[in-house]
């Protein structure tokens, strides 16, 4: 371990970055490279595991340990690594197809176990690497190469899905908002168990402009409902109020500030975060960004390793000869 503080350069590998010009992945990579020195963790203790898809090239560009694995399975490999090596900091890099379609099963089970992984889900609402088919987050009716008459599938809402899977930390941010992305990464790192960050990411080739409402300077201030723990949830023009068991977006002028919902990311009841997650079900006019939910629950790897140290503490470490000769044995002279 070096005593000198590491810099962005230390985390940049010598590989040429090969995403399409204008891809949202560039800004996420650059923000990550700037962020990693902040962690104060030596490079060799950091591992990035990805699946398949454009975003899954990410590990090649970081000078840490990394594995570009197979489609949808990154959470399984990362789980095995994190459980057996609790000393490491493990990130999973995945996309909407990788994590919600072919790898959907692994994502939900990893979240419910609360394995100590930071999962970055790059959501561009399209299949990029296979050149433009609809994804499980594409809006219904989307015209793509595989749906010339419009897709019939109801999309997944990744935040709702994660909450339904008992996730202890769920957040959303945007590829081009470097400051917000950085804040979200910090919050995820401070969380002990699984952290899922959905990153809205523009694909300029196959789904350009999917997130214009929340990225364009003219519209984003009004569209983004900022979730900051302890603060009222609002955009420049709108705010949130309680409406029965649910939440409603209202114009700021129509209510007094004290009527606005004050964000509680630590609310033990997931119904609150779920209600927040549903605000995007009709489009991107009002998009909550920030941490939906951040509750404390024991991490899986620490539980697994505690179970082992507890039994060793009680019974002492295993003795092979005692094991082999346990049970009914007999001696032949």
């Amino acid at each position: 371990m070096t005593d000198v503080a590491l810099t962005k350069k230390d985390f940049t590998s010598d590989q040429e970055v090969r995403w399409c010009p204008g891809c949202g992945d560039y800004s996420i990579l650059s923000t990550m490279q700037s962020y990693l020195p902040e962690l104060g963790i030596p490079r060799e203790k950091i591992v990035f595991i990805s699946g398949i898809g454009c975003s899954s090239r990410f590990p090649y560009y970081l000078n840490t340990f990394g594995m570009h694995s197979i489609h949808g399975r990154a959470p399984t490999i990362a789980s095995g690594l994190a459980i057996s090596r609790p000393d490491l900091t493990v990130f999973v890099i995945t996309g909407d197809g990788d994590s919600l379609s072919i790898g959907g099963n692994h994502l939900i089970h990893t979240l419910r176990r609360n394995v100590e992984l930071k999962i970055l889900l790059f959501n561009n609402q399209i299949y990029g690497l296979t050149k433009g088919q609809y994804s499980p987050t594409s809006e219904q009716g989307k015209i793509t190469k595989s749906t010339p008459l419009g897709s019939l599938d109801t999309p997944f809402n990744p935040i709702s899905l994660a909450l339904g899977a008992e996730a202890s930390f769920v957040a959303r941010t945007i590829d081009s908002d470097r400051k917000h992305l950085l804040e979200t990464l910090r919050a995820a790192s401070a969380h002990k168990g699984s952290a899922l960050i959905e990153i809205y990411q523009n694909c300029p080739i196959f789904n350009d402009g999917a997130f214009d409402l929340v990225k364009d300077n003219e519209t984003k201030e009004a569209a983004l409902l900022q979730m900051v723990h302890g603060q009222p949830i609002k955009s420049s023009t709108h705010g949130l109020v309680h409406k029965g068991a649910s939440l409603e977006v209202v114009e700021l002028g129509s209510v007094v500030e004290s009527d606005l919902v004050v964000h509680d990311a630590h609310n033990p009841d997931p119904a609150y975060a779920f209600a927040l997650s549903r605000l995007t079900s009709t489009g991107h006019n009002h998009v909550p960004v920030g941490v939906f939910r951040d509750v404390s629950r024991p991490g899986y790897s620490s539980m697994v390793n505690n179970q082992i140290s507890e039994i060793i503490g009680k019974q002492g470490p295993g003795d092979l000869n005692s094991l082999l000769t346990s049970g009914d044995t007999w001696v032949v002279d």
């Binding site: 399984t76 095995g80 690594l81 459980i83 057996s84 099963n105 089970h109």
Partner: peptide
């Protein structure tokens, strides 16, 4: 694990470590 794939995936991840 949650399925056969996750079972071997976790084993491979552990081997990597």
């Amino acid at each position: 694990a949650e399925d056969e794939i996750a079972a071997i995936g976790s084993a491979l991840g552990a081997s990597y470590g």
